[in-house]
Design a protein around this nucleic acid. Structure first.
Length: 559
RNA sequence: AGACCCGUGGUGUAAUGGUAGCACAGGAGAUUUUGGUUCUCCUUGUCGGGGUUCGAAUCCCUGCGGGUCUACCA
């Protein structure tokens, strides 16, 4: 990074201090998603943070499925999470865990808690619990069974565990302080009854631990030293510490909170992403418009770009909204160095070279990547009838227009200088064909007499060009800050109706051969990625990853 | 209304009592066989008010603004 080279974010500083004063002798972190959805770019930030810390301090980072709620979790999600973490470039080694693998141990600890007089079974209904809870101004009231004996609680919890009660009829609660200003300390529920099938433990359990209870224990069982989570868990920390202290676990991990990532023009909550998928507003979790890791992968974003972006946004406790331009810059920066160039015409119009011999075909040599000589060259067929972008011709243009307009000379990329002679139009006045003459001495794109042209345009030979589907993606939402919805609007109203435009593009022959997942640049158009799902051998489908920066579009009159 | 957290250019982030810097975005120019890339330059900031100090973005007080919390979700 170009920030001050010695900069260490606040979590690194905490770890530095812990190691320096001997409070810790190693660094163990974890990335603990609940497998109830696909990972998104916000998770990528957490993954980079946790695995990054482990790498930096030569510790380890566990991948752990936080699967304590059987009604919301699925193996499909487990598999996608593993794939995404790996794709991002991180390795959990042998340290893959599941919260559900600890259910026995957690249950035993719950019994221990009861024996310590620190937990009790409560038979209040959900509504009653809420009512007894009190609020900011009023302390809560004790549950009728709050002071039941250890024996009674042990028995009641045993009956809960055996499935003798229906869902909702009883819960196990920690016994802390019904008057605490922190609501999470007012005897939080730590076990509830769920008669549901769990994707890992099957039908073994009828009681399942709550997040607040399970998470600190998972961390402690695994020897996690630094348990990093997002800001909204700040108020949960007192309970996290209370539980470890009360149970006196051998390892006492430290919970540290940082600000979650927010991005302009998109949503980041799993709930909303799930709704987009379920309501069919996108094609799936991996729709290239989604901020999911799988969506971005399909769109053509690289792991390096995502990692770089996460570095750029940093780690702080500030609530912030990162400009998606930061992400796009990281992507362009990476793709500019690594992707091969090709010529593809997204909105074709015919260009006829009047003085080029009918039937003649030449193979012109094109450079694959000007940023990388080792990428080599390729041959591109050239002939009398070409296709160019419709926007590269203007019958009447101002002086700043460097492309084709009657009387003006431009270079055909890797081809010849051509001078525009005019155009033909249909009855409606639409241009059907642009005409020009070429200078045979400029083959390859340089004039022997040293004359210059201001513009270079891309092209394909009509007779040789392939035709492919290109999907032009734009931002999913037309609204910048999705955490700030205008009065009277639903967030769905803010979807960008033009987030996807499909076109039939005409492409140079070499482009037909690229395999699924290949990232390329369409010269002067943008970076594209052959869709991993819909591409067929010889018939790739291209997703536009991001456009090229376009300083002409900014000042040009709208086409 | 309480408790807790957070306020640095348009955006993100440094400076940890001692020159407010970097990246993105925006603007101008140069280079260029992509109006891309690269290079140069420029615009824009410490939320307000007090205090401590030789010196405050940094420490204290206060006001303001934003966020979080009152699930048998995580």
């Amino acid at each position: 990074m170009s920030e001050s080279p010695a900069h260490r974010h606040f979590i690194q500083q905490i770890v530095d201090a812990d190691l320096a004063d001997g409070r810790r002798s190693e660094v163990v972190t974890r990335f603990p998603p609940e497998p109830n959805g696909y990972l998104h770019i916000g998770h990528a930030k957490s993954i980079c943070l946790n695995f990054g810390l482990a790498l930096e301090f030569k510790g380890r980072c566990h991948l752990r499925m936080d699967d304590t709620n059987p009604t919301k979790e699925e193996v499909e999600y487990v598999d996608s999470i593993k794939e995404d973490v790996r794709w991002l470039g991180f390795d959990w080694g042998g340290h893959y865990y599941q919260a559900s693998d600890y259910f026995d141990r957690m249950h035993a600890d719950a019994i221990r808690l009861i024996q310590l007089g620190k937990a009790y079974v409560c038979f209040l209904t959900q509504d009653q619990i809420r009512e007894f809870h009190g609020d900011e101004k009023r302390p809560g009231r004790p549950s009728p069974t709050r002071d039941a004996s250890v024996g009674e609680n042990l028995m009641a919890f045993e009956r809960m565990t055996r499935g003798e009660f229906d869902e909702g009829k009883a819960v196990l609660r920690a016994k802390i302080d019904m008057a605490s200003p922190n609501m999470h300390m007012r005897d939080p529920v730590i076990y509830r009854i769920r008669k549901a099938h769990h994707h890992n433990t099957g039908d073994k359990w009828r009681v399942y631990p709550m997040y607040d209870y399970a998470h600190p224990l998972e961390d402690a069982y695994e020897g996690v030293t630094h348990s990093i989570c997002t800001l909204e868990f700040e108020v949960h920390r007192p309970f996290y510490d209370w539980l470890l202290r009360t149970l006196d676990t051998p390892v006492k991990p430290q919970q540290i909170e940082f600000a979650r990532l927010n991005l302009t023009y998109t949503v980041m909550s799993k709930r909303r992403l799930l709704e987009l998928v379920q309501e069919g507003r996108v094609a799936g979790w991996d729709d290239p418009r989604m901020p999911t890791i799988s969506g971005m992968r399909r769109r053509g974003y690289t792991p390096a770009a995502l990692r770089r972006f996460c570095e750029t946004v940093g780690v702080t406790k500030n609530n912030s909204l990162s400009d998606v331009a930061l992400l796009e810059h990281a992507v362009r920066d990476d793709l500019n160095r690594t992707s091969s160039r090709f010529m593809a015409v997204l909105d074709p119009v015919r260009l006829v070279i009047e003085n080029y011999p009918e039937g003649q075909v030449e193979e012109l040599q094109a450079v694959n990547n000007p940023e990388d000589p080792s990428a080599g060259t390729r041959k591109v067929p050239f002939s009398r009838t070409l296709l160019i972008e419709r926007a590269d011709f203007l019958e009447q243009a101002e002086k700043k227009f460097f492309r084709l307009t009657p009387g003006q000379e431009v270079r055909l990329r890797w081809g010849y200088f051509v001078k525009c002679t005019g155009c033909r139009k249909d009855a409606a006045g639409k241009v059907t064909e642009v005409t020009c003459v070429y200078d045979p001495s400029t083959r390859g794109g340089d004039a022997p007499d040293g004359r210059k042209v201001k513009g270079t345009i891309h092209w394909v030979s009509e007779a040789h060009a392939g035709e492919v589907e290109a999907r032009l993606y734009d931002r999913l939402f037309a609204h910048e800050d999705l955490n700030d919805i205008p009065e009277g609007k639903d967030w769905r109203d803010l979807l960008n109706p033009e987030s996807l435009r499909k076109v039939r593009a005409r492409v140079e022959p070499a482009l037909l051969a690229v395999g699924p997942g290949t990232r390329v640049q369409f010269e002067r158009n943008g970076y594209f990625c052959a869709d991993a799902k819909d591409s067929k051998p010889g018939a790739p489908v291209f997703n536009r990853t991001v456009t090229l920066k376009d300083s002409w579009a900014k000042q040009a009159p709208k086409a």
